[in-house]
Computed example of a mutant assay.
Amino acid sequence: MVAQALLIIDYTNDFVADNGALTAGAPAQAIATSIVTLADQFLSAGDDVILPTDLHVANDPHHPETKLFPPHNLANTWGREFYGPLATWYAAHKDDEHVYAFAKNRYSAFANTNLDNYLRERHITDLHLTGVCTDICVLHTAVSAYNLNYPLTIHEQAVATFTPNGQEWALAHFKDSLNAKIER
Rank of each mutant, 00 (worst) to 15 (best):
Q29C: 08
F42K: 07
F82I: 06
R184W: 03
E97Q: 03
T163L: 06
N73R: 04
A28V: 04
Y11T: 11
I31F: 05
N73C: 09
A101P: 11
P52H: 03
P71F: 09
Q157G: 07
N114E: 11
P151A: 12
K67H: 06
N117C: 03
F174D: 03
L115M: 06
A109C: 09
L148V: 01
V49G: 07
L148W: 08
T33Q: 14
D40W: 05
N76D: 14
V159I: 07
N149Q: 07
V138D: 03
T88Y: 01
S177L: 10
S108F: 15
N112V: 04
A160I: 02
L148P: 06
Y11Q: 12
N59H: 15
S34C: 01
P70K: 08
E65S: 13
H72C: 00
T130R: 03
Y118A: 02
N112R: 13
K94P: 00
R120A: 02
I50L: 12
V49E: 09
F162T: 01
P70D: 10
V16W: 06
A160P: 04
S34P: 01
A109E: 10
L171F: 02
I182Q: 11
S177M: 10
V36I: 12
G20S: 02
F69G: 00
T88H: 02
A103N: 14
E121L: 08
G20Y: 07
T125M: 02
P64I: 12
D18K: 12
A26C: 01
T125F: 00
D14K: 09
Y90M: 08
D126A: 11
A58T: 13
A24D: 02
T37D: 15
Y146G: 02
P61S: 06
N114Q: 14
V159L: 07
C133Y: 06
P164L: 08
I136C: 07
L127Q: 05
L22K: 03
H140C: 06
N19Y: 02
C137N: 06
C137I: 07
V2D: 05
R184K: 09
A26I: 08
S144V: 07
A17F: 06
C133H: 04
D176E: 12
F42G: 11
A45Q: 13
L22H: 01
L139C: 04
N114W: 13
V132C: 13
P70L: 13
A45M: 01
I154Y: 03
Y90D: 13
T23Q: 13
Q157F: 05
R120C: 02
G46K: 05
N147G: 08
F102Q: 05
L86M: 11
